[in-house]
Computed example of a mutant assay.
Amino acid sequence: MVFMTELYIATDVEADGPIPGPYSMISLGMSVAGRPDLSFYTEIKPISDDFVPAALAVSGLDRDRLVREAPTAQEAMAAVDGWIEGLRTIGRPVFLAAPAVFDGMFVHWYFHRFVGKSPFGGSGAGIDLRSYWMGMNACDWSGTHKSVIKKKLSLTGLPHTHHAAEDAAELAQVFTALLERNKDQ
């Protein structure tokens, strides 16, 4: 059996509401852990007229501009699917998010709705940073906030900006540091 290198694709979503379908994923960032040269970012035209103003405000994106200028969900998801499929020449893509429940819900739904399949498999399964940390450190859920993880890993200067590309890069750096720490133990 041939084993491929796993590529942990740190993923961040900005959305204008709590769930996909009634609300829209408005930007998507991905960054491969340990490979800052491998990243993807797209903004996405909203798929519905409904949005939660407070949720939209988190990203700072202009919804009217997205409606006018952003690629459609089908175009954006086809592009990200192509990018992920291209990574298969160097390794096996593995979804990574924090929290995987929120980001994974949008990514999985959007892939199935607009591409017909997910490059992460039928279940969209992947790694949740907080669950991984909890398992590795035998700690309670309350001790798994990303700020706590970054502090314990002595990571400074990694802000969480709510820009999908920057937050995906932040997550990739955190997970890379976590893997390095685990390798040393």
Results as ranks from 00 to 15, higher is better:
residue 1 M to R: 09
residue 4 M to D: 05
residue 4 M to S: 14
residue 4 M to A: 11
residue 5 T to W: 00
residue 5 T to G: 03
residue 7 L to R: 02
residue 10 A to M: 02
residue 14 E to H: 08
residue 15 A to H: 00
residue 15 A to M: 07
residue 17 G to Q: 06
residue 19 I to S: 12
residue 19 I to R: 08
residue 20 P to K: 04
residue 22 P to E: 11
residue 22 P to L: 11
residue 23 Y to D: 03
residue 25 M to W: 00
residue 26 I to P: 04
residue 29 G to P: 08
residue 29 G to D: 07
residue 33 A to H: 00
residue 34 G to E: 09
residue 41 Y to N: 12
residue 41 Y to H: 12
residue 42 T to F: 05
residue 44 I to G: 15
residue 47 I to V: 12
residue 53 P to A: 09
residue 55 A to W: 05
residue 56 L to W: 01
residue 56 L to I: 02
residue 56 L to V: 01
residue 59 S to T: 06
residue 64 D to M: 11
residue 64 D to N: 13
residue 68 R to C: 14
residue 69 E to I: 11
residue 69 E to P: 05
residue 71 P to W: 10
residue 72 T to H: 07
residue 72 T to K: 01
residue 74 Q to F: 14
residue 75 E to V: 12
residue 76 A to R: 05
residue 77 M to V: 07
residue 79 A to T: 09
residue 79 A to F: 06
residue 79 A to I: 04
residue 80 V to F: 13
residue 82 G to N: 14
residue 82 G to T: 13
residue 83 W to Q: 13
residue 84 I to P: 07
residue 85 E to H: 13
residue 85 E to D: 15
residue 87 L to D: 01
residue 92 R to S: 07
residue 93 P to F: 00
residue 95 F to N: 02
residue 96 L to F: 07
residue 100 A to C: 04
residue 100 A to S: 04
residue 101 V to E: 14
residue 103 D to Q: 14
residue 105 M to Y: 03
residue 111 F to C: 09
residue 116 G to H: 06
residue 117 K to P: 08
residue 117 K to D: 05
residue 118 S to F: 02
residue 119 P to I: 06
residue 120 F to K: 02
residue 121 G to F: 02
residue 121 G to V: 13
residue 122 G to R: 13
residue 130 R to P: 04
residue 133 W to Y: 06
residue 134 M to L: 11
residue 134 M to C: 15
residue 134 M to Q: 15
residue 137 N to C: 09
residue 141 W to F: 11
residue 141 W to E: 12
residue 145 H to G: 14
residue 147 S to W: 12
residue 148 V to Q: 07
residue 150 K to Q: 15
residue 151 K to L: 02
residue 153 L to Y: 03
residue 153 L to Q: 04
residue 154 S to F: 15
residue 156 T to Y: 11
residue 157 G to H: 11
residue 158 L to C: 13
residue 159 P to I: 11
residue 160 H to M: 11
residue 161 T to V: 13
residue 164 A to G: 08
residue 171 L to H: 10
residue 171 L to N: 02
residue 175 F to C: 00
residue 175 F to M: 01
residue 176 T to I: 11
residue 176 T to R: 11
residue 177 A to F: 01
residue 177 A to L: 00
residue 178 L to C: 06
residue 179 L to F: 08
residue 181 R to C: 08
